[in-house]
Design a protein around this nucleic acid. Structure first.
Length: 405
RNA sequence: GGGCAGAUACCGAAGCGGUUAAACGGGGCAGACUGUAAAUCUGCUAGGGUAAUCCUUACGGAGGUUCGAAUCCUUCUCUGCCCA
């Protein structure tokens, strides 16, 4: 039994950017209810970057909503297309992976995606299954469906072309390959980030060419990273991973710029719109302090992935370290090898892997970023007696007990 | 096939024979401030060396000219543009 049309559409519309064509989706859902048959919802996974973060969660969460409405999710692991490398949002050609690499990454992708997706009503497919067996004739036939001008409509391509950045021919094939997936699995709806809009529409177009009922496309916003400027991505190191610890999730959320708070409430914490609206107004008239709004958001995000208890302790830990400048409740301990239990501070930091080089150690020490047992130490050459356990603090976040063997 | 332009540190981009571990911007890190790992301000940002006008590595690759090269020459690789 499926929920009614209006109920479904209300859920589906939440937070979306594009839903095209909307009336077609209405027909599809009406039909689905009448025939008691779930829609086939497609989501392509790019296995070239298998580290999922809460930016990916925006779309995955939408997929989950479809599942909860009774529809069927098809997750396409782009093991074949991963070899091409998605040109989306890239100013450079992506490195090409081998099929084995993309397969392994794909597995890890599935594990992380199912943190959000439910395991029933989920079908996983690898697109090498059909793309790998296409021969050159098939490819030419596929390619003849699109023109160069159409491809260049895409921002990524036209920008690169205008700026003189190389575009390899094989990159033009990427959208077509991805579109082929839609033809093969006969998807009713394809989800993606707004940067995928072009690719999704190619899928729709190809379905028509190949005589399959065309899919609707639904795009979700691209979540800005914790720096508040660039989109969230692992390579920019502005991401909150789905597998991050509660502490990390909390801290990273606290580091977002204030103007991102309501955005994160909606797309990362999935809070309800009335609450978000209230916070937005509170922030504007000053009745809500940005820090408190952020704390609330951070706790909610941790709660989504780790539960309410973890959220509470992550918050307490944050208070302890950054507000009360206290030390964490759990600190690692490391046994250091050295003669006579004494070691130069700069050497110590490097040996304890707190810094990548001795130069770096010296810089940090001289800038006052290092304390030993709570006392600031600015001479990189003082020898520290570590025959008894000492507490090192490097920067704001790194704590470590050290002791000699 | 021919002509022209280009390849610089994490990224963008100056430099065009010595004072250049390389301006400037971004990013990153640290400090100050703050009810936040927000904002703002300041400093640092190749490795080694308890110092130096010290050593090593570094301006696409390989050679060469020179007391001395990111800067000049040769050649190779890669990229863009134009002509065919």
């Amino acid at each position: 039994m499926f929920p009614g049309l209006n109920e479904q559409m209300d859920v589906i519309r939440q937070g979306v950017v594009d839903l095209l064509p909307e009336n077609e989706l209405v027909h599809k859902i009406e039909k689905s209810i009448k025939q008691n048959k779930p829609l086939n919802i497609k989501l392509g996974a790019d296995p070239s970057r298998p580290d999922l973060h809460i930016g990916h969660a925006v779309v995955l969460h939408k997929m989950r909503q479809f599942q909860d409405l009774g529809h069927e999710a098809t997750l396409i692991i782009g093991d074949f297309t991963g070899m091409i490398g998605d040109p989306t949002g890239k100013s450079k050609t992506r490195p090409q992976l081998t099929l084995e690499e993309t397969k392994i990454n794909g597995q890890s992708y599935i594990e992380q995606a199912t943190i959000i997706l439910r395991a029933d009503r989920l079908i996983v497919k690898y697109n090498s299954e059909w793309l790998n067996s296409m021969n050159f004739v098939d490819v030419i036939k596929l390619a003849s469906n699109y023109t160069v001008a159409q491809m260049l409509e895409r921002d990524d391509f036209s920008n690169r072309y205008k700026s003189g950045t190389p575009i390899s021919i094989h990159e033009l094939l990427y959208p077509l390959a991805q579109g082929m997936d839609s033809v093969v699995i006969k998807s009713d709806v394809e989800l993606g980030g707004t940067d995928q809009k072009f690719n999704l529409l190619v899928g729709r177009e190809l379905q028509k060419q190949y005589g399959v009922e065309p899919q609707c496309i639904l795009t979700m916003p691209i979540l800005a990273g914790t720096d508040g400027i660039q989109k969230m991505s692992k390579s920019l190191d502005n991401y909150i991973a789905l597998t991050d610890s509660p502490k990390e999730m909390f801290g990273k959320t606290m580091s977002i710029p204030d103007n991102l708070i309501t955005l994160y409430m909606l797309h990362a914490a999935f809070m309800d719109s009335a609450k978000i609206k209230a916070t937005e107004e509170g922030l504007k008239d000053g009745s809500v302090h940005p820090r408190n709004a952020k704390v609330e958001t951070a706790m909610k995000i941790v709660e989504v992935y780790h539960g309410a208890d973890s959220a509470k302790s992550a918050f307490e830990e944050f208070e302890r370290i950054f507000v009360n400048k206290d030390i964490p409740d759990v600190i690692d301990e490391m046994v250091i090898e050295c003669d006579g239990g004494k070691i130069g501070l700069a050497d110590l930091l490097m040996t304890a892997l707190l810094t990548p080089s001795k130069k770096e150690s010296r810089r940090l020490i001289e800038q006052g970023g290092v304390t030993v047992d709570g006392e600031k130490c600015t001479d990189p050459f003082t020898h520290i007696d570590i025959s008894t356990k000492r507490l090192l603090k490097v920067g704001k976040r790194k704590f470590l007990y050290v002791i000699s063997n």
